[in-house]
């Protein structure tokens, strides 16, 4: 039969063994937020850059990954630039076609309008001269 004293010892031992385990479990569930790691896109401080450089230099796999990441980023950037250049080039090409077509129409319409105005002016002059000739002929053939 366990005595009261042995039960107290058992409770103390259990507390000593289980409590740290429970504490570790709590840590695993809710880890303490690391400090000093910047968000993506923010500028690194000189110390952080140095630490990163040391880390990259010490790890071959990380070095390869960083190199591949930078290369992919540069390729993506160049591709975006090329796409922008290409869309500008095609927009310019369309503009050239439209300008040429517009000039062609303007020349044709301008020429036709010029001819129309010239024809109207000539017809006016012809009508005026005909009237003068008619009047002169009638005056000449009238009674002296």
């Amino acid at each position: 039969m366990p005595t009261r004293l042995s039960l107290v010892f058992a409770a103390l031992i259990l507390t000593a063994v289980v409590a740290p385990g429970l504490a570790r479990g709590q840590n695993a569930v809710a880890p303490v937020a690391p400090t000093g790691i910047p968000n993506p896109g923010t500028e690194l401080s000189a110390t952080q850059r140095r630490q990163l450089q040391l880390l990259i230099e010490s790890d071959e796999t990380l070095r390869t990954q960083v190199r591949e990441g930078i290369t992919a980023e540069l390729i993506g950037q160049r591709r975006r630039e090329m796409e922008q250049e290409q869309s500008k080039f095609f927009a310019d090409q369309k503009q050239f076609v439209l300008i040429a077509y517009g000039i062609m129409w303007a020349l044709v319409v301008g020429f036709v309008v010029f001819m129309f105005l010239r024809q109207r002016k000539l017809e006016g002059e012809i009508a005026s001269l005909e009237a003068r000739i008619k009047a002169a002929t009638q005056a000449g053939s009238g009674p002296a």
Binding site: V112, Q119, L122, E125, I126, L129, I133
Partner: peptide
């Protein structure tokens, strides 16, 4: 149209 213009001009000169 242009030939007609030429004819009108010739007629005007004759007149």
């Amino acid at each position: 149209v242009r030939k007609r213009l030429g004819r009108s001009r010739a007629r005007l000169e004759a007149l």
